[in-house]
Design a protein around this nucleic acid. Structure first.
Lengths: 344, 344
DNA sequence: AATGTAATCTAAAACGTTTTAGACGTCAAG
DNA sequence: CTTGACGTCTAAAACGTTTTAGATTACATT
């Protein structure tokens, strides 16, 4: 049913390669032929069979992004959606598509291996890097173009884009200390993720810089979503000497924490300060609006995409590693401690 | 570099088709050969070249979802993310991938045409249906498998999944009238979208059923995001006789409206009631938590995917049209009107 | 010894494109 | 009149797989 080069070739009485070359605008085709072929192709509604072209060209114009599935699916995270959106918008300009698939964390490596051996993708985008990340080792070994969103613990000798989470949280701590807080707690995502690790580092940095003690009981490692934030905050509030400020490592955790604080009959932004990270839409509309750290999610997505396309085309990238400094957004969930806060 | 059937064939001393058939487990291959081939293939790390297979099989195991781009990108809408996530999770089980691309609304039809002629996708998912939807006509004409998320105005003779938005908003209106409201306003998305149209219909249904007048000035058609909600609410509040309840047609609009109400020095859930639609994460954490209509976004995604895969495989679908009834979630953004509400 | 049958395998073609290498005719220069 | 160069085109091969149709061998039946 669909029109092929052969159909055109028969119609214009030229060989298939001639038609192909005419459409591609090669110089060794006479202007008349070229014109004829292009006219007929348009008339017949010819559209190249991408699969056949891919097979011949050994490239697919498709990028892969493999998500850890189900339990901790990041898809519904607003920050991540924005990031994705940045990628899709950017690559669309160059005729690339994004292919999204999922995998259980147990089969993660196999999935990557399968996908890269299947030669179905020109490049990979790795999200949510871990301190030790076998996926990156794998892609590197195989020499496949990829760009990571996030770093690993060491040997970051690959193309990546990252936030400076350490700096971001440090800003938060500075802000809180300036307000007069001396007893801060941190609610962290799983710290095998580099991102999370950095954020916690920023927290510790901040305390140390202000000569405040780092109390391990005030750093709770938990999960990603509100529920975890709520639970963590509950624990913290029930301590004999509860903190006056909660530094949550993402906005969802902060929201959960806000719920727990309200359950305790306290008022966020007055009795206790809470901060988030990411500046998702929600944080502006929370009650009270959340002091948080803003990241240009969509831009980071575009940047990752840009670097990856360069890599695929063998073009140089200005920088191999792009680290983006986030900015503190002060809203109403933070204020001076109301009582019991020991001045430094 | 990557291993092909030919490599295996040379290694085991059998022809390429034999290797292919052995791996596929055909009966006309001796058990010994089959075993040998499979062992060697595993040893060599063989993974089929999907592109080559696709070309031969004339299918791609890939579904397409084309998003209207930029200006009104739905990607970052939490509801839509959930929906997507439902699709991806479902099709992953059957080895399908989802390909996401974008298009400007002017080239929308061309993009569809190009994609379907390129034979790169086994089926299409159409989102955000319009009352008159040329995309659907196009896909139908070409006999391409597709499932729509949403209906059109007439002749819905295709596979689709939809919410019953009319019913959903009707529930909202009933709830508000029960509380004693008699002057309700509606903040709508662009009503060329079927979804939006239905929701407004539900609003009108409700008023009519309770013998309340339908005042066109109290139905504002606007856009999708908070900003639009805010503007619309502002207009409504400045009316000589402002409404006591605002029925927003999605949660983001409701949030915007809440902002406008607060700007006016009024308290949401006390001085004025506000409702949303979709029950995105945000709505639970808004201030005050938003009364809204819940939809199983992820399930709807799975359902669309399920129907589409059936369609592609020529399997029958139980129902051609699945309409899902949403449910009202009452939170604290609605209450009896404080003053001036004329009892019916 | 011819015939039929089953088991196992493979040659050839196909999917639709692009690339490579070279064919063919025309024309100008020697 | 030959040689070389140019302009235009195409045959053949390639990408890696699967399908089709048939070949080959071994074995049992008559």
């Amino acid at each position: 049913m669909p029109v092929t080069l052969k159909d055109i070739s028969q119609r214009v009485g030229k060989s298939v390669p001639t038609v192909s070359r005419a459409l591609a605008g090669f110089e060794d085709i006479s202007p008349q032929t070229r014109e004829l072929v292009q006219r007929v192709a348009a008339e017949m509604g010819y559209e190249p069979n991408i699969t056949a072209r891919n097979l011949q060209k050994q490239r697919t114009d498709t990028l892969a992004l493999i998500l850890p599935s189900a339990n901790t699916l990041r898809f519904s995270d607003p920050f991540f959606s924005e990031f994705l959106s940045g990628i899709v918008e950017y690559i669309a300009q160059f005729g690339y598509d994004l292919n999204i698939s999922t995998t259980d964390s147990e089969d993660e490596l196999e999935t990557y291996l399968r996908h890269l051996r299947s030669r179905r993708f020109d490049g990979f985008i790795v999200v949510r890097t871990k301190l030790q990340d076998a996926r990156i080792d794998l892609l590197r070994e195989h020499g496949v173009p990829f760009v990571a969103f996030g770093q690993t613990e060491a040997n970051n000798d690959f193309h990546l884009v990252d936030e400076d989470g350490r700096y971001g949280v440090r800003q938060v701590v500075d802000h809180l200390v300036e307000l007069g807080h001396t007893r801060l707690a941190c609610i962290a995502e799983p710290t095998n993720l580099t991102k999370s690790h950095h954020r916690v580092q920023g927290f510790i940095d901040g305390l140390t810089a202000h000569n405040l003690p780092v109390d391990p009981n005030l750093i709770i490692e938990t999960n990603f979503r509100q529920r975890s934030g709520r639970q963590a905050a509950k624990l913290l509030l029930e301590l004999p000497e509860p903190p006056t400020a909660l530094v949550a490592c993402n906005d969802l955790l902060a929201l959960g924490a806000m719920g727990a604080v309200q359950d305790h009959g306290l008022t966020v932004g007055k009795d206790i300060s809470i901060t988030g990270f990411d500046d998702i839409l929600l944080s502006e509309y929370a009650h009270p609006p959340l002091t948080t750290v803003h990241q240009p999610a969509s831009d980071m997505g575009s940047k990752v995409a840009e670097m990856l396309l360069n890599l695929i085309d063998g073009k140089p990238n200005e920088e191999k590693q792009v680290i983006i400094k986030p900015s503190l957004i002060i809203r109403q969930s933070t204020s001076a401690p109301s009582k019991g806060g020991e001045a430094p």
